[in-house]
């Protein structure tokens, strides 16, 4: 078990190294440069001075080694367009994204699993088809389009929800304020993820329902509800947990767009701005952090597997 864990971690570190190198060379080869240099009215002299200050005139290989060395010591450098250290900036944005993504995830799991179970129990009936159709539809809508439509409806027409931001500016912090701001972005984000969870929960449940031990339980005369709760669901959890690992990258990608639409001050918006402004240290930090989150979650999920289902043994 420990050997397995350390091997996975080691592989994860190797993957992170690959990700960081690939990203660094990619973004530095991209045309353009930090937005302070790439300005319609900047002169050659101004650009030369800034390049010198930012150390951008040194060879790219050397710059990568510098970045790597500093990053290994926990120093992520300063944002080129903000002049501020990257780490606290990222920490703050990550908290905001975690709040949004966490809420969406919670919504998705509650509704997704419930709908999935419902749908599985009514297999083949109109309800099953309807759930299937609605969730497929959810998967088919562009999230920025959905977001725009919701803003037009709930903020502009009905004056019901704030159109953007995380908190009302100038008002003292309150939970209700946070929640009304959270509602639309979290709904859009979860609506897009919902279909996967519904379908997954449905098929996971169907699969175990046909397993021998469920049939045995049923044949013992247990009521359907008891069969479902005591036997089927317990085993269906495994693939549902696995689902988390799969939708996490989707969740992070989805938050990029949703944060842009609703002006949510999270990591996704930071990443887009950094890409547009060629803010190299910020791009590096967000990409490596996103990769680390995905890798660690995957390892955790595999461990969870063995806890939920003792039959899964990691050698």
């Amino acid at each position: 078990m420990l050997g397995y864990l350390s091997r996975r971690l080691l592989q994860g570190i190797l993957v992170m190294f690959l990700v960081s190198a690939a990203t660094f060379f990619l973004i530095n080869l991209a045309p353009g440069g930090p937005s302070s240099l790439m300005n319609l009215n900047s002169t050659a002299q101004q650009r030369a001075a800034l390049e010198q200050q930012l150390g951008l005139n040194r060879p790219i290989f050397l710059r990568y080694l510098n970045w790597l060395g500093a990053a290994l010591q926990g120093r992520l450098g300063n944002s080129l367009s903000q002049g501020e250290p990257v780490a606290p900036l990222l920490a703050q944005r990550l908290r905001h994204t975690a709040l949004l993504a966490g809420t969406a995830l919670l919504l998705v799991f509650i509704f997704g699993v419930a709908l999935g179970i419902w749908s599985a129990r009514k297999r083949g009936r109109p309800i099953d088809h309807l759930v299937g159709l609605v969730s497929t539809l959810g998967m088919s809508l562009p999230e920025f389009w959905l977001g725009t439509l919701l803003i037009m409806l709930f903020s502009v027409r009905l004056h019901f929800l704030p159109a953007s931001g995380m908190l009302t500016v100038g008002a003292p912090w309150s939970l209700s304020d946070l929640l009304v701001h959270l509602l639309m972005p979290a709904l859009v984000l979860s609506f897009v993820l919902l279909p996967n969870v519904v379908r997954f929960a449905r098929s996971a449940l169907l699969e175990v329902m046909e397993a021998d031990y469920v049939r045995t339980a049923r044949s013992k005369g247990l009521r359907e509800r008891a069969v479902l709760l005591r036997h089927a669901l317990r085993n269906a959890w495994i693939p549902i947990i696995a689902m988390l690992g799969l939708i996490l990258p989707q969740l992070l990608s989805g938050s990029v767009v949703v944060e842009s639409v609703f002006a949510w001050p999270g990591m996704g918006r930071l990443a887009v701005q950094a890409a547009m402004n060629r803010d190299y240290p910020v791009i590096m930090a967000t990409t490596v952090l996103a990769a680390a989150i995905v890798i660690l979650t995957n390892i955790l999920i595999d461990l969870l597997y063995s806890l939920v289902d003792p039959r899964v043994v990691h050698a």
Binding site: V15, L26, P249, L252, S253, V256, I283, A290, A291, V294
Partner: peptide
């Protein structure tokens, strides 16, 4: 797979 698709595409 570790880089969320969008971040990779942006770069």
């Amino acid at each position: 797979m570790a880089i969320p698709a969008f971040f990779l595409i942006l770069a």
